[in-house]
């Protein structure tokens, strides 16, 4: 190592190529054209909301138009001042095309739903109806969000911890594998939803039944992946640790578990998907709180805007949960190279 560097020190340094030498520099334009178009598209959103009469009763139409107009003005301001702005202009640069498409989508949605009535109402309400839900029904919606997040957190955490511990013990101990493996094979593949009818009378409350179902749906993939992770640990790691004086406690905690962690995270990721579907099913069918329950009630009353509003929130929560899990994985597995980014 050292002799190589000292050898190269004698020679004149070779010209070092950077990206700037390979890719011709594009002069920074005076204005961000894409951002400007995005601003115009969002003015179209505002204009479409104001230009024609609504075919129904949506009191939040002016609010919606004002919000769209404000966004449009913001995009245009950033686009015009892109030479002086740092982070906002970079963001607009990256998101520009998406903002144009979204602007067109909202305009079309506005016209098709609230103005021209092309889509059957009340099944496809206009965007201002969703805004109305967020602004005027927020207490009820917020309560539902809290209930869902709480249920999901409890169920997922209990399932993940139980699955991890079970996976480690059957991966490490033959005796644990003897007793747990048949049960796992028999019960594990059963969809958690199949327990639903039993769970709701066997548990004291629909809340605890929901936790049980989510934990079950989480526990199975986490157990199997943790187990396979422990079994696939390179045996040479154990040899090395043992010759360095490690006892079984060290072998489990400091060798087997860290080596199995990439598998564990795959299990946690898979479990997140199944646990969400169980969460929604449980809330739609039995638990008397949460976003599923809110959506169920909204559909019953014919409040379709509430249904979409809740669905959007649910999508954000699920995506946010996956982001959190990936952030945790990036932290724990920073020693790995080539991680998938989310």
């Amino acid at each position: 190592m050292s002799d190589i560097s000292s050898r190269s020190e004698g020679r004149p340094a070779a010209p070092r190529l950077t990206l700037a030498d390979v890719v011709p520099a594009v002069p920074r334009p005076l204005v961000d054209v894409v951002g400007l178009v995005a601003g115009i598209a969002w003015f179209a959103v505002a204009a479409s909301a104001l230009a024609l009469e609504d075919v129904g009763d949506w009191p939040r139409t002016p609010t919606f138009a004002a919000a769209a107009g404000l966004l449009a003005a913001g995009f245009i301001a950033v686009a015009l001042a892109s030479r002086w702005l740092g982070a906002p202009s970079r963001w607009l640069d990256r998101a520009g095309l998406w903002l144009i498409v979204l602007g067109l989508f909202f305009t079309l949605w506005q016209l098709a739903s609230a103005k021209l009535g092309w889509v059957p109402l009340p099944f496809f309400p206009p965007p201002q109806a969703l805004l109305e839900v967020y602004l005027d029904d927020f207490p009820r919606l917020g309560e539902s969000i809290l209930a869902s997040v709480k249920l999901q957190l409890w169920g997922y955490s209990i399932g993940a911890v139980a699955g991890f511990l079970t996976g480690v013990s059957i991966g490490w101990s033959q005796r644990a594998a003897y007793w747990v493996h048949p049960v796992l094979r028999f019960i594990g593949p059963l969809p958690a939803g199949a327990w639903l009818p039993i769970a709701f009378f066997a548990f004291p409350s629909s809340w605890s039944a929901g936790i049980f179902l989510i934990a079950l749906a989480t526990g199975f993939p986490v157990t199997v992946l943790t187990w396979s992770g422990i079994l696939s640990v390179n045996p040479a790691y154990y040899d090395v640790a043992r010759t360095l004086g490690a006892r079984s406690r060290f072998l489990v905690l400091k060798v087997a578990i860290p080596a199995a962690l990439p598998h564990v995270f795959v299990g946690l990721f898979m479990a997140l998907g199944t646990s969400f579907s169980v969460l929604v099913v449980a809330e739609l069918l039995g638990v008397k709180a949460g976003l599923g329950f809110y959506m169920q009630a909204a559909q019953g009353w014919g409040d379709y805007a509430n249904l979409y509003a809740a669905l959007l929130v649910l999508a954000l929560i699920c995506s946010g949960a996956v982001s959190l899990l990936f952030a945790a994985r990036d932290r724990f597995l920073s020693w790995q190279k080539d991680l998938v980014t989310w």
Binding site: A236, Y237, D239, V240, T243, P258, A259, L261, W335
Partner: peptide, 14 residues
């Protein structure tokens, strides 16, 4: 009595 194996077998997470 410590062994150095043909593969370094370093723990990649450390």
């Amino acid at each position: 009595r410590v062994v150095v194996f043909q593969d370094p077998t370093l723990f990649p997470w450390r």
